[in-house]
Amino acid sequence: MGQFLLKDVSYYYSKDRLILDHISEKFESGRIYVILGPSGCGKTTLLSLLGGLDVPKEGSIIFNGHAIGKKELELHRRKNVSFVFQNYNLIDYMTPEENVRLTATQDPKPILEQMGLSQDEMKRNVLKLSGGQQQRVAIARALASENPVILADEPTGNLDETTAMGIMDVFREAASFYNKCVIIVSHSYEVAKRADVLFELTHGKMKQIRMEDLQKTVTEE
């Protein structure tokens, strides 16, 4: 189980350039959250704070009731969250199997098979796989870690629509079957449609939007 709580979180590079402005929100396991917003609005910064890559200037991030301190960021990344990036971020001299083994506590083959990779593909260099396959390997690595939260930054940004929907199916399975809390930052309308909860981040503020307002929001972006 993973429950994230943002408590009055602010982030800025300078006082006159506020990126995140006193955000308070809650993220729970078993659900897919999608955060929408224009480029440069702070979506990736928010994901970095949630993932322990940086610390908020003000406020606190609480995971399962425990505030993440500066000295616990490494442990937080190792034990609580898994990242999935737009450009996959796999280790380029390793095979899919070896990439998943970096975080896996068990044999990585079943989870890679589940992601649709053949035995042959598991032993190839990751750079010899298609973009969709590489992203599946990245997700397999996130799932294999058994960390309760997946943070995905534009996970379908480099993929065609069909492949992107396949990836969203995997996230859905992660939330429903593995009971993960999946937080996705995206521009994509199609990705947003698959969310359980939708947020919009503009001018440093984050607000929840209804599914029926989604079309309007995406059009405005």
Binding site: G51, L53, E74, L75, H76, R77, R78, K79, S82, F83, F85, N89, L90, I91, D92, L102, T103, R141, S145
Partner: peptide, 12 residues
């Protein structure tokens, strides 16, 4: 790139 990946998965 490799170091970034290791850091993101919590390697010390």
């Amino acid at each position: 790139h490799e170091i970034g990946v290791y850091l993101s998965i919590g390697k010390k």
